[in-house]
C-alpha cells in the first residue's frame, strides 16, 4: 500500500501522466482536423464529368449517337453521328452526350454552343424533365440575336430528345445552378422546354 502511495506521489509518475494526457489531446485534435479537411475537400471538389460509376474497370462498347450541329449550307440544325462509349445509366449517358455536344468541333459544321461552355451537372426527375446545369459561358459568351439563341437551344433539345426519346420529355436549362430567364434576351427559359 505504502509502495503504491509512493509511486503515485513520485515525480516520475507526474511527468509520465502529464505526457500521456498531452499525447491523447494532441491525437484527438489531429483526428478532428483530418476529418474536417476531408469534408472540406468533398464540398469544394469540382463535379467530375462524366461521373465514373463503380463498374469503370470495363469500358462500355462504342455506340453511334446523333449530335445536332448547325449546317452552314442548309442553315439548319442537323444530326451528325459520333461514336461514344456510353454508360447504361440514363443520367450518366445524358452527361456524356451533352458534354460531347458542348465540345464537338467538326470542320463542316458550326457548333451553336458558345466556346468555353461546360456542363456542370445533369439530372432527370420523375416527370421525365432533364435539368442541365451549364457554366456561365453559355449565356455570357453568347453572340446574341434571336436566331443564334434558338439555334443554341435547338441543338441541345434535339440532341437530347434524339438520344432519349422515351426517358426525357422536357429540358430545363440552368446556368451555374440557377434558373435564368433567357440566354441573350429573347427565348424564355423560365420553364422546361420541349419540341
Amino acid at each position: 500500500m505504502n509502495l503504491l502511495r509512493k509511486i503515485l506521489h513520485s515525480r516520475l509518475f507526474m511527468v509520465w501522466g502529464i505526457t500521456l494526457v498531452v499525447i491523447i489531446i494532441g491525437l484527438a485534435i489531429t483526428l478532428v482536423l483530418i476529418a474536417h479537411s476531408k469534408r472540406t475537400r468533398i464540398l469544394d471538389a469540382p463535379p467530375k464529368l462524366p461521373d465514373t460509376p463503380n463498374t469503370t474497370d470495363i469500358l462500355p462498347p462504342p455506340e453511334q449517337v446523333n449530335i445536332f450541329l448547325l449546317n452552314p449550307t442548309s442553315l439548319e440544325i442537323t444530326p451528325v453521328q459520333v461514336e461514344l462509349r456510353l454508360y447504361s445509366e440514363p443520367t450518366e449517358r445524358l452527361k456524356q452526350i451533352v458534354s460531347a455536344l458542348v465540345q464537338e468541333t467538326l470542320p463542316n459544321y458550326r457548333n451553336p454552343i458558345p466556346r468555353g461552355t461546360l456542363l456542370n451537372e445533369a439530372y432527370i426527375d420523375s416527370q421525365k424533365t432533364a435539368y442541365l446545369d451549364f457554366s456561365h459561358h453559355l449565356a455570357d459568351g453568347h453572340i446574341g440575336g434571336t436566331t443564334a439563341e434558338l439555334l443554341t437551344v435547338s441543338a441541345i433539345l434535339k440532341t437530347i430528345f434524339d438520344a432519349f426519346p422515351n426517358e426525357i420529355i422536357h429540358v430545363q436549362i440552368l446556368i451555374d445552378g440557377k434558373e435564368k430567364k433567357t440566354l441573350a434576351g429573347h427565348l424564355n427559359l423560365s420553364q422546361p422546354l420541349r419540341f
Binding site: P72, G145, A148, N188, Q191
Partner: peptide, 25 residues
C-alpha cells in the same frame, strides 16, 4: 439578329407563343 453562320440574312418576325417551337411544358 445574329447567327453562327454568316450566310443567315434578312428580316425575321417573331410572336410570343408558349405553344410554339420550342414550347413550354
Amino acid at each position: 439578329n445574329a447567327s453562327f453562320s454568316p450566310n443567315h440574312k434578312g428580316m425575321r418576325l417573331y410572336i410570343n407563343n408558349p405553344n410554339g417551337q420550342p414550347r413550354f411544358r
